[in-house]
Design a protein around this nucleic acid. Structure first.
Length: 335
DNA sequence: CAAGCGTGGTT
DNA sequence: TAACCAAGCTT
């Protein structure tokens, strides 16, 4: 892969005595050295397990909400075996309101697999990590790179956005991760030196941080960007996105109902009677929102409101997903 | 592979 | 204020 494969946009001015894509590597990592947030999972004393827990929690959840929960987890479960020895329900409870509670379930399962298959140590190889529940391409690369210094190519949504703007001249990355984006990310990696992956590690972390703090999705802070003068998107006059991002509906969705159920189960010490759980209020089904008259007619015919049917379906879903268990006394978090 | 999966701060 | 969106993974 040569730099000529990167496409038309310029990658800074080469030939000025600056190695690495016309000095981009150096400029971004220098910016990072000054501006990086002091996050506990980045400190040298943080264990691979600490990095792994942070990566799970950071999947689709902002740093500020992860910080306090991560601290609690590290104090309570400093090693994978500590978590693996607990019931999954304890992981779900300690997950609190981070969202996507199946991540807690998968992290708990991953801890058990680490104990069984890896002697209680977080594996460092990408393939071993990828085999763990809840670990996909991004998380495997991130753990391998940030916890072990492996020269992996890490690609998250921040990095994709920086690449889209800096190199491709677009406001946003493609709606779905493309092979072209993967090739670009590979091509942008610093050359393999004799530093044991240190430069790769710094580049990954620096571009990610640049995307999180400066090259943000909305109202980017281009004045503070160390490579704005080399940015294809700035050069092109900051054109609008070439597609409309899909929204994430919430009111009346199954997600809202499942979230409400999980909140009740987390707060309960013992099992909650099924009827009580199904009776919690606060949500209106999407059907009832769209057409209250139709929903009322349906209820007269069947005796079940659309909301009631939705709650039944959502409870079944939680049980099927292993987020809850049902016994003779009711529904509870799993053992 | 597009859809589904929580939650709450920001705009 | 409603909409956007945040270090993705799984099916």
């Amino acid at each position: 892969m040569s730099h000529s494969d990167l496409g038309e946009p310029r990658l800074g001015e080469p030939g000025l005595g600056e190695p690495g894509l016309g000095g981009l590597h150096r400029r971004v990592t220098d910016w990072f050295a000054v501006n990086a947030r002091d996050l506990p999972w980045r400190r040298p004393e943080c264990t691979p397990w600490g990095v792994m827990v942070s990566e799970f929690m950071l999947q689709q959840t902002p740093v500020v909400r992860v910080l306090p929960v991560w601290e609690e987890w590290m104090e309570r479960w400093p090693e994978p075996a500590d978590l693996a020895a607990e019931p999954a329900g304890e992981a779900l409870r300690a997950w609190g309101r981070l969202g996507y509670p199946r991540r807690a379930l998968r992290l708990h399962g991953a801890a058990q697999r680490i104990v069984e298959d890896h002697g209680g140590r977080v594996p460092s190889a990408h393939a071993d990590l990828l085999a763990l529940p809840g670990v996909g391409a991004y998380t495997a690369a991130a753990i391998s790179c940030f916890a072990f210094g492996s020269p992996e190519t890490v690609v998250d949504t921040n990095i994709r956005r920086v690449h889209a703007r800096l190199v491709s001249g677009r406001a946003l990355p493609e709606p779905t991760y493309t092979a072209a984006e993967a090739r670009l990310a590979e091509a942008l990696m610093p050359p393999q030196g004799h530093d044991g992956g240190r430069l790769a590690n710094a580049w990954n972390a620096a571009v990610m941080e640049l995307g999180a703090l400066v090259c943000t999705a909305r109202s980017p802070r281009c004045q503070q960007c160390p490579v704005a003068d080399a940015c294809a998107w700035v050069e092109a006059g900051q054109p609008e996105p070439h597609y409309v991002p899909k929204g994430q509906p919430w009111a009346g969705t199954d997600r809202q109902v499942r979230g409400a159920f999980m909140a009740v189960l987390r707060e309960s010490d013992g099992p909650v009677p099924r009827a009580q759980l199904l009776g919690i209020s606060g949500q209106v089904s999407a059907t009832e929102q769209a057409d209250p008259a139709l929903a009322a007619a349906w209820k007269r015919l069947t005796g079940l409101s659309a909301a009631a049917e939705q709650r039944l379906r959502c409870l079944d879903g939680l049980l099927a997903d292993g987020l809850a268990h049902e016994g003779p006394e009711g529904v509870a978090l799993p053992h």
